[in-house]
Design a protein around this nucleic acid. Sequence first.
DNA 1: ACGCTGATGAAG
DNA 2: TTCATCAGCGTT
Length: 212
Amino acid sequence: MTEVRLSTLPQSFFTRDTHTTARGLLGKLLLRTTERGTIAVRIVEVEAYVGTDDLACHASKGRTPRTEVMFGPPGMAYVYLIYGMYHCLNVVTEKEGFPAAVLIRAAEPVWGEELLSQRAVDAYPTRGPGKLTKALGITRLQNGHDLKLKSELYLADDGVVIDPALVRCTPRIGVDYAGKCSAWPWRYILTSSPYVSGTRKQTGRVTQRRNP
DNA sequence: ACGCTGATGAAG
DNA sequence: TTCATCAGCGTT
């Protein structure tokens, strides 16, 4: 068992332009500790949501109780309930007062895979934003949590370097309602990962490609 | 293509 | 206080 050295991510990582931070999060680790142990997953798919002009961004409605943390300091978790059933985990970015965040859509298990919820019934329990949070036990209880500090939920760098040639951008998923913003290529994926959502390499079938 | 499900924000 | 809507997912 080789020793792995983890570094937390500094505030300066998150204050940058949201797209830079989004790309930077690809390959980083998300660590989740519960009473059962610690799980580490490597981020392979993210989306940027930026400011009030981005009609797909919740902050386009202005400052509301839900979006409050997006207006706060960067590096915090913005977690909300979607479709009455699933939670989505976002990382707040940019300067305090400017609402923006990166949605974590998918990740690859690295350690503690046996602790993932749904592991027994789903070959890819961390593929898709709703499944990822369910697998890691993330709910609104973690809304506003500081992801920069070692804790029950935080981000870290284990030194793995991502080849920029493996990063691809596409339009964001599920934001057709956002008019012209829906076509903006603000989704970033690691093409090398089978955990990226929207593909079904396992069955070899693609019934409908949302991002041709 | 559709139903599940409840928080959310806008309308009244 | 209602109402339409929704950054997903599994099944059809």
